[in-house]
């Protein structure tokens, strides 16, 4: 008798565990308290508010460096996930092994340009990345962050990345 395919829910739980491991493996992401929510292949970065994220205490506003870091973290995790997703689908990468600590190499930032549209308020922030070019060696990513209103981002950024070498590259 043929083996029954695994229930989709089990596959999803494995992928969530793999994503958690990817994020938890980076000390700086933990330091800022950033986490990721997954809906299928779409990721949203969440930056829960903490007092230590403030730059200007008079306004008060999030530090510009925090905004930039949140956007860059979201771009890197979003780009990594977009690269991993098809390899999970094809079975080339095992989500269980990844969840257990066999983490993939991350893309390296070449440059990152942040546009500060309005000041970041002292509350939670969200961000989503869009990979606009995804080559074997280079990738371009647009990323946007908002707080109360998705239609009124407080910052967006554009970054270029060098992709980690994949098996078979020479």
């Amino acid at each position: 008798m043929a083996r029954r395919p695994e229930p989709v829910q089990v596959v999803k739980q494995r992928r969530d565990a793999a994503l958690d491991a990817l994020v938890a493996g980076v000390p700086y992401i933990r330091f800022l308290g950033i986490r990721f929510e997954r809906r299928g292949d779409e990721l949203t970065g969440v930056l829960p508010y903490q007092d230590m994220l403030i730059g200007n205490p008079v306004l008060p506003a999030l530090h510009g460096g925090v905004t930039s870091a949140f956007l860059e973290v979201t771009a890197i995790v979003g780009l990594s996930w977009s690269m991993l997703w098809p390899r999970f689908e094809s079975g080339e990468i095992d989500a269980v092994a990844m969840a257990e600590g066999q983490l993939p190499r991350l893309p390296k930032t070449v440059d990152f340009t942040v546009d500060y549209l309005r000041s970041g308020l002292p509350r939670d922030a969200y961000a989503r990345a869009e990979v606009t070019r995804s080559g074997r060696r280079y990738a371009s990513v647009l990323v946007e962050a908002w707080q109360d209103n998705r239609g009124r981002p407080f910052a967006h950024a554009m970054g270029h990345f060098v992709m980690p070498p994949q098996e078979g590259d020479r």
């Binding site: 700086y28 530090h63 510009g64 460096g65």
Partner: peptide, 13 residues
């Protein structure tokens, strides 16, 4: 290696 975000904060400040 330190994260680029930390370098961004240093640069911005």
């Amino acid at each position: 290696v330190l994260h680029g975000g930390a370098v961004s904060t240093l640069m911005d400040t």
